[in-house]
Design a protein around this nucleic acid. Structure first.
Length: 424
RNA sequence: GGAGAGAUGGCAGAGUGGUCGAAUGCGGUGGUCUUGAAAACCAUUGUACUGCGAGGUACCGGGGGUUCGAAUCCCUCUCUCUCCGCCA
């Protein structure tokens, strides 16, 4: 969420810039400012009464000590009204604060100045294309046919064990998963990311910290007996490492990565174009997360984009990088680059990574700050994350693009990990 | 799952109703001394809100209560540790 200070000091600019996100902030901003001013004045009234109360109490203590019991009792009688008054004001203050919290989370993050105008994914700006779209020799099958043909991923079996969207990877299919995970982690390590293996269920506080709760509660599987949530992305546990922390300035940037399974309920979003591996309830992903100095977060973002590009390149997949437009960028992001790979048999681009800078929007909610030696107060950090990479669509593209009459060729970089070079 | 003990500042650890935002030690920062370092000595050292400022207010695991006054008493929740049980 945005800081109240920023909203107070930049209200015109805020309203103007949120228009790029197709968000009309004017009324909410007005309401927030009014509530915040109200909060401040009520707070200072409470403080003042409280100060009165404190000094009165001190006085009473002194009087008792000096044995002046009747004077003490007299002073005591004065406190009743004050006490009632404070209670009343505190109730008001609570109401105002609650209302303010509700309003302030309604405002999305401010888009970066480079975010293009636009209403939908069709208006995203392609900043780069790479790799080569090769002709497929022979029969051109979509991956959902290929996995059946070679018996490497079994959807029906997953349905039997769990339900739709929980595939079972078998034989070379399973090993390909493991190979990709290890390859991604090794590449991440080379790029300076520290590997963590976090819990894949999280508590409510963590859900709030990264913004899945309270709004997007429906996206997560919820273990109600213990009130824990299955993570939709490793971003949740890995970013929450730094919830309520003040980190040292010289430690920045903190670069972490994690492999985790991810769970998404994706309620009601199933249709014809989400066949096969295109959308699942459970999938594997390696996520990279950075906690960066505010002045260096865009440098960090560039580094993350370069890292993802490097991996996609090594896999030999045709790709393009999109700068998301105001209408497509997420609520919490300031700037997002999507990576898409071309899937030859489906003849469409598949999103495989999304790399974002949240600036201090997420950090404000997390209360993650940094402090340097000559800083008087800690300041909010910037947070960034990106997939590097999500497996299912990478697998889909690899299977489809590398199919030959003999079988599916495994990219050279993966062979040391898979220990086979063809699926046939 | 059963029984017991506990949660205080960056860490360790005192504090059982008033002058406690909290002793003391360690650590951190600045300084004196030194060619430099160590040692010693001196000073300083939490966060948030609010105010131009002096200052004020809140915070001793979370929430609630008793009281003129709570780190301290009561209720409740969470977590940690020890022992027992179960277990990859």
């Amino acid at each position: 969420m945005l800081t109240l200070k920023f909203i107070q000091e930049n209200k015109e600019e805020l309203v103007k810039r949120l228009k790029v996100k197709r968000f009309d902030a004017e009324q909410i901003v007005e309401k927030i400012i009014e509530l915040d001013n109200n909060r401040k004045s009520t707070q200072s009234e409470v403080d003042q009464k409280q100060a009165e109360m404190n000094s009165l109490s001190k006085e009473i203590g002194m009087l008792f000590k000096q044995g002046k019991v009747s004077e003490a009792n007299e002073a005591k009688s004065k406190t009743a009204d004050l006490k009632e008054n404070i209670k009343e004001l505190n109730n008001q203050l609570n109401e105002i604060s609650k209302e303010l919290d509700v309003e302030v989370v309604k405002l999305p993050n401010i888009p970066h100045l480079s975010v293009p105008e636009g209403n939908s994914e069709d208006d995203n700006e392609c900043v780069k294309e790479g790799g080569e779209i090769k002709e497929i020799e022979g029969e051109k099958l979509p991956h959902w046919e290929l996995i059946k043909k070679y018996d490497i991923i079994d959807f029906e079996l997953g349905t039997k064990i769990t339900g739709a969207g929980f595939p079972v990877y078998k034989g070379k299919g399973a090993r390909l998963q493991r190979a990709l995970i290890n390859f991604f982690l090794d590449e991440g390590e080379k790029a300076g990311y520290n590997e963590v293996l976090p819990p894949i269920v999280v508590n409510e506080d963590s859900g709030f910290g990264t913004g899945q709760l309270p709004d997007k509660e429906g996206m997560m599987y919820h273990a109600t007996a213990d009130n824990l949530y299955l993570i939709p992305t490793a971003e949740v546990p890995v970013t929450n490492i730094y919830r309520d922390e003040v980190v040292k300035e010289e430690e920045l940037p903190l670069k972490n990565m994690a492999y985790t399974p991810c769970f998404r309920r994706e309620a009601g979003s199933w249709g014809s174009h989400v066949r096969g591996l295109n959308r699942l309830h459970q999938f594997d992903k390696v996520e990279i997360v950075q906690i960066a100095h505010p002045e260096k977060s865009y440098e960090a973002l560039e580094g993350m984009v370069a890292h993802v590009e490097n991996i996609v390149n090594k896999l030999g997949l045709p790709y393009r990088i999109l700068r998301l437009c105001g209408g497509d960028i997420s609520f919490t992001s300031a700037l997002t680059f999507d990576f898409e790979v071309y899937s030859a048999a489906q003849e469409r681009w598949l999103e495989v990574s999304s790399v974002s800078n949240f600036e201090n929007y997420q950090a404000n909610r997390l209360k993650c700050r940094y402090k340097g030696k000559d800083m008087k107060k800690p300041e909010l950090v910037h947070t960034l994350n990106g997939s590097a990479l999500a497996l299912p669509r990478i697998v889909a593209a690899l299977l489809e693009n590398n199919q030959t009459p003999e079988g599916i060729r495994i990219p050279e970089v993966l062979v040391p990990y898979t220990r086979f070079d063809i699926i046939n």
